[in-house]
């Protein structure tokens, strides 16, 4: 603060008044927000960790050690939810690569690139509920997509009613609805690219693939890392609405994800302690995603 005092004759008085007033003001400005964050985010997190070690029903509030976690490990529905998280991980490269390639095209200023950007981003602003409802119509067994398949001489597919297909339908719709998000993040990254590097690559006779591999990817490593993390977190925490509307976890629990499991276990099953344990598993999963991907990308960019 000292550098701000420009009126020499009043220096000491002004400074003393400043220091105390300024500190009180900072306290007044920051405290409400901190109360909300600590009270509504951090305290519940600690409480949740504690609940996860207590029992449900008759053993409500009684310390039971890790038995909730043992129940989870043996629960076929929760295991399906975790298996589906594995599928999400497998889908992740696609969910990042598609918008990455599209962003490259848009960066090259294909004709109509502004229009494409607006269209691709549009589903991102719609609620998963709206998206899910629309695809409920499109993917229903007697719906339009199957009508097209039948006309083309193919057998209809029970997109949301077949336990082997439904999870892929839900993941596919999620990627369809959210790739615009990764796209605009990539484009923001592209706009920070150093044009002289690209010009240099061109002077050296690099083709598009070489330019992307040796200039764009290393330069954008932080953006790529950010997209990986946000896309995976979106998959782990942003699919509840779709599952709820499209399949309600069915058929036969095949489309459960951890967040849906937590919600059902807390509410319909009335087992909040077990739900808390599932919450902690999801939280650890989120932290691992953040850490693991930061490392992976660091290594990948060193090799490139």
């Amino acid at each position: 603060m000292a550098e701000a005092i420009t009126a020499p004759q009043r220096t000491t008085a002004v400074r003393r008044w400043h220091v105390s007033e300024h500190k009180v003001a900072a306290l007044v400005l920051v405290t409400p927000a901190l109360l909300v964050i600590v009270g509504l985010r951090i305290v519940p997190l600690v409480l949740g960790a504690q609940y996860s070690l207590t029992g449900d029903g008759a053993r409500n509030g009684v310390f039971v050690g890790l038995s909730n976690y043992q129940v989870l490990a043996g629960d076929p529905v929760f295991r399906t939810a975790i298996r589906n998280v594995g599928l999400l991980f497998l889908a992740l490269p696609v969910a990042v690569a598609v918008p990455g390639i599209l962003a490259t095209f848009l960066f090259l200023k294909v004709p109509g690139h502004r229009f494409y950007r607006s269209v691709y981003f549009f589903p991102v602003v719609l609620s998963p509920v709206i998206i899910g409802a629309i695809f409920n119509i499109l993917l229903s067994f007697d719906g339009p997509l199957n009508q097209v398949l039948t006309k083309a001489g193919l057998p209809p597919v029970d997109w949301l009613g077949n336990s082997h297909v439904a999870i892929f339908a839900v993941i596919g719709v999620h990627i369809w609805a959210t790739f615009g998000m990764a796209l605009v993040i990539f484009m923001a990254g592209f706009s920070t690219l150093d044009q002289s590097l690209l010009d240099a690559a061109r002077c050296d006779g690099a083709n598009l693939m070489q330019t992307v591999r040796h200039v764009v990817i290393p330069e954008l490593s932080r953006t790529i890392q950010f997209v990986f993390v946000t896309t995976m977190i979106g998959m782990l925490t942003g699919m509840f609405g779709l599952v709820y509307v499209m399949t309600a976890g069915g058929p036969g629990g095949a489309t459960y994800l951890p967040e849906f499991y937590i919600w059902v276990t807390q509410g319909q099953m009335n087992s909040p302690a077990l739900a808390s344990a599932a919450s902690m598993v999801l939280f650890v999963l989120m932290l691992l995603v953040g850490l693991a991907q930061v490392r992976l990308i660091k290594r990948a960019t060193k090799e490139a």
Partner: peptide, 30 residues
């Protein structure tokens, strides 16, 4: 503004970004 604990408190706020609602919904409900 400069005040004691500014950096630390800001980190608390950012850290809360990593806590999705699903993780805290049970105690929150209670």
């Amino acid at each position: 503004l400069t005040f004691r604990g500014r950096r630390w408190l800001f980190l608390v706020c950012l850290g809360a970004l990593m806590i999705p609602f699903q993780v805290i919904m049970v105690p929150f409900f209670r």
